[in-house]
Nucleic acid binder design. Structure first.
Lengths: 198, 198
DNA sequence: GTCTATAGTGCGATAGAC
DNA sequence: GTCTATCGCACTATAGAC
């Protein structure tokens, strides 16, 4: 057996499948069990069968492990907004984006999201990081609308309104006693916004 | 001249009027001139004729000196929302709040606000602090609406939409080449939101 | 790795307003 | 005299320079 093959086998566990995902899962479990502050990065890495150094190769800091999915969410949103028919009004394009984001807000993920939200709710630094992520979602949407030819302040305003709908729909989606699906919550919240501002 | 008298003269400014306001003004000038990071709290205090220790009696940290007015803003908003006639729809109460906030957004303050915003725009930590302040405004408004009997999610949604209007109006108000007054910007942004979500 | 500058805290002393 | 804003000092924590 060649050294190359032996090395490859040696890496099987180290390079086990989805290292990043294992880190996310381990972090979520430990943050939930012992609290964010009481969990060290070393513990997260160990539980995932990795080292602290590897954790920081995947995530900029201890918080970021909880927000790894937000880039994916942003891409889903932006792609759907950008891909809406040019005949679609700005708010329709944004609505399409919010609905497209539902790919990650399915029933299998709901328990996971609930646990994640309760971790975030319990810690000021994590709540702040979430505000930053939301703000960056809003500017990504606004940029996309501008690229579709929507001028300011309409682009900014539509994006901010869209994020307002997102926040409300998401809060309801992770609410303990709620079983309504993502797309119904988005449509319902958007419809309610229309009524409220009318 | 005795040492005691010299000491007394040195302390003349100690009980000068509006120590907090002097600290705010000094901080604004130094942050604008040399940048937030390149300014020390000791320098701010010295320029205000005070000591570092006194700075921290008035402000929890170096950032907070730029956000001292935000409690005042929140009170203006909340009071006006709470004081709206009970016949007023939620969005009307919020609009009344936004217009009432205009007390602090007058022409004399515009230059000051512009400088403040350019300082905040130049620094990530300050932008984050601003997000936090905005989020706390939104929840204060939502709470006030709930106290008026507006149920969730309408209260949350109206508050978030109101803050979206606030952000856009404020951005336009501090925009370099803009001379439109606060109330026109609020009414205009709100009217545009209505059109956009319709 | 040590050294330095700065942020931020705790507590007791003091100066001046009342 | 009381009350409180301010000061002085000693401290910890941490980020950056070297």
């Amino acid at each position: 057996m060649s050294a190359a093959v032996i090395a490859m086998i040696g890496r099987m566990t180290r390079w086990g499948p989805d290292a990043k995902g294992r880190l996310v899962q381990s972090a979520l479990e430990l943050y939930a069990k012992r609290g964010y502050d009481q969990t060290t990065v070393a513990e997260i890495a160990e539980r995932a069968g990795l080292t602290e150094r590897t954790f920081f190769r995947h995530f900029a800091d201890k918080k970021e492990v909880l927000f790894a999915g937000s880039n994916n969410l942003r891409d889903l949103l932006v792609t759907a907004v950008a891909g809406s028919p040019s005949s679609a009004a700005p708010i329709e394009a944004v609505a399409a984006g919010l609905l497209a984001a539902g790919v990650v807000f399915n029933e299998e993920r709901r328990a996971h999201s609930r646990r994640r939200q309760s971790i975030i709710a319990a810690n000021a630094e994590l709540r702040e990081r979430e505000l930053i992520k939301m703000a960056s979602l809003a500017s990504a949407i606004a940029d996309t609308l501008r690229r579709r030819g929507v001028p300011d302040p309409a682009a900014r305003l539509t994006a901010e309104a869209g994020i307002a709908v997102f926040r409300v729909a998401f809060d309801r989606w992770v609410d303990a006693d709620n079983e309504v699906g993502w797309s119904d919550l988005v449509r319902g919240s958007l419809a309610e916004l229309k009524v409220l501002v009318a």
